[in-house]
Amino acid sequence: MTLPQLFFAYFAVSITGLSLLVVTRKNPVHGVLWMLVLFVHIAMLYLFLNAEFLAAIQIIIYAGAILVLFLFVVMLLNLRVEETERRFQWSWPVGLVAAGGYAVSLIFILVKITVFPQPGHYTIEKMQTEGNLMIIGKVLYTKYLLPFEITSLILLVAIIGAVVLTKKKQE
């Protein structure tokens, strides 16, 4: 095994283990905190894939914003009682079987993929000379301008929706 492969093995094992921890914790706060650790690992994996910008927003948006939102909600709902009850549904074995089936089928599909498209011209050297952020910015504001604008609209809807949903009804 080469060094990169060893690094990957570490990340693969820890990400899988952390994922299992996240979905099995009884206390949601613990689950969210393990998720935080998981996100940091994924961010590092992005670095490994020459995607510095993604690593940054993974930490900033996921860990910094979304998980904090989760923690807020957990605290607001104040679910002390819930912790004493069972954490899984009665049908959890079926879910387990289904998830196992997913894993097996997906791996089977993905292993079968042998034909890949022609590599693009964003080689690693180009990325490194021009800078990851610069390239993403250029592409995002030219080729993908419309999806980008639509995303901003989605965020606007989310803002308004969240305000409307949580607002107290005025009689």
Binding site: A98, G101, Y102, S105, L106, F108, I109, K112
Partner: peptide, 9 residues
Amino acid sequence: LCIIAAMVF
């Protein structure tokens, strides 16, 4: 899952 499995196998 059934659909995916059918496609695979």
